[in-house]
Design a protein around this nucleic acid. Structure first.
Lengths: 222, 222
DNA sequence: GGATTTTTCTGACATGGCGTTAGTACGCCT
DNA sequence: AGGCGTACTAACGCCATGTCAGAAAAATCC
């Protein structure tokens, strides 16, 4: 789903196959370098020459492994993707205790955001300048809209979540998460993890489980 | 605060003064064209040549009025800014009825977003590729964080809003608004206004005024 | 109503990043 | 040693950018 090598529609030519591996080595060297680069400098300063200079390879080598910088970003995103989806499961699968499942999922999300904030920001920054990457990024975000929305509907059926149109609310909450994570953890000096977590946690819970909120948030009603 | 002309630190040379005005005319012709362009095509397709071709002027003329495309975007943003700040006042100033003030403000916000969605998306898209514009955009968003946070603190003092650290929550809610508006109204086929409004409205109110939520949202407690 | 100054505009250039192509270097096999 | 595939690179053409010196058009003067 990303670049040359892995099974891949849409790229003009697939180069380098997985099994033998001097290639795999240089490829991941490039990925590493890119990763390191983006931890300290914004995507706009990343140029192919710029990137490969921190490598022992020539600029043209880059094009043997990636179609362009956006292709590189897509690959980087895919590396993070797993962690996020993983973390989300706590809430999505725990039918028993919605509130604490959500707690857990959001905590996991914030953790991943904290670790890979620079990648997330870089991808979000890179997306608007490339149609394909923009589509990938939006699809990525959109996939959460779907599952969150489904879970909300489920909790509404159970009566633990107020009635409302789930999809737009899911979208809003997800955009919030994305925006907050990138804002908080996208630059060199990262925000306080607990502070961020408790802010988004409060918003999710107030919105989805307001009946619990009294106890859970610890505040009297009327 | 934007480009050549208006009082303006940081631009290398200020050209064209306001009062006499053949210049002002071409300048706004360019702005108009840019505006029109961005209503149907993304920022990444906007090039100086591209833009000026839809004008009766040459490419170089562009540089008489703007430093670069990002400068143009900054000017475009400033034109929208007013409307948004304006709309926010309803809630910020209405001490009497927080909930309905917030209703009003969010409705105004969604209206502005609906009208100028393409500009907002274009600016957000353009920001990451230019340090200066990125700073402007973040400052713009950040300014709302400040005022919203202040208002929250005030309502907490009054006891109508639960106790929590206001700033991170304000930030999260604002990022949500920005993300939602751009997502919903940034492309050619815009989302349903009422749907968007009621989603973000619900989230804001559940979070800030949960004690009202029961009545206002119309759902039984426990 | 022609000359002069000021305003507005433009063609032509240099720069820099991009992506491709033709070709080189190296290891391995037999 | 010759041939083959893998891994790499130097050099090229392209396109958008921003600048600059000077042309054209408008305004002003006499």
């Amino acid at each position: 789903m990303s670049e040359k090598s892995e099974a891949d529609a849409n790229s003009k030519r697939v180069v380098r196959q997985l099994p033998p591996s001097k290639a795999a080595l240089t490829r991941s060297a490039i990925l590493d370098t890119g990763n390191r680069f983006l931890e300290t400098r914004p995507f706009r300063e990343l140029t192919v020459a710029n990137l490969m200079a921190e490598t022992e390879h020539s600029r043209s080598t880059f094009y043997l492994y990636f179609n362009d910088l956006h292709g590189l970003m897509e690959t980087l995103l895919n590396e993070v993707k797993g962690g996020i989806v993983e973390g989300a499961r706590a809430w999505l699968l725990n039918e028993a205790d919605a509130v604490s499942g959500l707690h857990e999922s959001l905590r996991a999300l914030v953790d991943v955001g904290y670790q890979h904030g620079s990648i997330l920001k870089a991808v979000a920054d890179a997306a608007p300048s490339d149609e394909r990457l923009e589509h990938v990024w939006e699809t990525f975000l959109g996939s959460f809209d779907q599952v969150v929305s489904a879970r909300i509907a489920q909790d509404q059926a159970k009566g633990i979540t107020p009635e409302f149109d789930p999809l737009p609310v899911a979208r809003a909450l997800n955009r919030m998460d994305a925006g907050v994570l990138i804002n908080a953890f996208g630059s060199v000096q990262k925000a306080n993890k607990e502070e961020v977590l408790s802010a988004i946690m409060r918003i999710w819970i107030s919105t989805l489980y307001p009946f619990d909120a009294a106890g859970s948030i610890g505040h009297r009603f009327k």
